[in-house]
């Protein structure tokens, strides 16, 4: 790792101020992606502003179906929240399968979505749940937030504070892990709103990162069943292709995972 200057913030305002004073700074939350990236010399910020000790970024509230999760909430905390599980178990299950237990103790929701790894799990959920992503500057819809591979609408000095969504009537996430990295080769989050509307978020498989699958959404809105997906096609041209699986295989996985998610959602 190259040399770096570390700053610990205890409030969002302090974090923003520390960031503004530094040269080429980055925010670090759990650090489970950033620290390895820095170790490999693939990132070289001059300064790190640590958000992990900011109380205001932590916590989960559920009120009348409205869910808010602090950006600094760890995957383990999301996975283990009984309150959240009663409102939206799928997001708990998703968080409980990110990385491994030690990674889940450090890694945070905010860190995950800010990084927008195309194989990360949370972006699929954010898109399917139509989550609102609140920062210290504004609130963004999830679809406007994720802009491409490792790209988001966040400005460099912008801090994610929380994400909020209305718990859907039914939802589930199904993931097919890469045999090596265990990141998603295809992860599909399906959500059916209380009004019957359906959103399907797909991660891992797409060559441009997370995306919604409108064909699946239409089919499932008309008929919420696994059979409804039989005749929906997944465009291979949109899929990643690598040593772990070609585009045809990934397209198949997207459909299989979507069916499994629908089945799990009930």
């Amino acid at each position: 790792m190259y040399e770096v200057n570390y700053h610990r913030a205890t409030s969002v305002e302090e974090a923003a101020a520390l960031f503004a004073k530094a040269g080429d700074a980055k925010f670090v939350a759990g650090g489970q992606t950033l620290i390895p990236t820095m170790k490999q010399h693939l990132a070289a910020p001059s300064d790190l502003v640590d958000l992990r000790h900011i109380t205001a970024l932590k916590g989960i509230t559920v009120s009348g179906g409205q869910v808010t999760i602090g950006a600094g909430t760890t995957h383990a905390e999301v996975a283990g929240s009984a309150q959240l599980r009663s409102a939206c178990a799928a997001i708990c299950d998703l968080a409980g399968h990110i990385g491994d237990p030690a990674v889940r103790h450090m890694g945070t929701l905010g860190g995950s979505i800010a990084n927008n790894d195309p194989a990360a799990d949370y972006p699929a959920a954010m898109v399917a749940l139509n989550a609102a992503i609140r920062t210290n500057k504004r609130t963004l819809a999830a679809e406007d937030f994720f802009t491409g591979l490792f790209e988001t609408a966040l400005e460099a000095d912008e801090i994610i504070v929380s994400v909020s969504f209305q718990a859907p009537a039914k939802c589930a996430y199904a993931k097919f892990p890469n045999p090596a990295s265990r990141y998603a080769m295809a992860g599909v989050f399906v959500a059916r709103g209380t009004d019957g509307s359906v959103r399907v978020g797909v991660t891992g498989a797409g060559s441009s990162g997370v995306f919604r699958h409108s064909g699946m959404e239409r089919a499932l809105a008309a008929n919420w069943s696994t059979g409804a997906l039989d005749n929906v096609s997944v465009d291979e041209n949109m899929m990643l292709s690598d040593i772990h699986g070609d585009a045809a295989y990934r397209a198949n996985l997207v459909k299989v995972m979507a069916k499994r998610a629908v089945a799990a959602a009930g």
Binding site: R8, V28, G31, Q32, L48, A76, A102, V103, H105
Partner: peptide, 14 residues
């Protein structure tokens, strides 16, 4: 809690 000490800075653990 179990964590990976290769993925945590000493200063983070202060």
């Amino acid at each position: 809690k179990a964590i990976k000490s290769c993925t945590t800075l000493a200063v983070q653990a202060a």
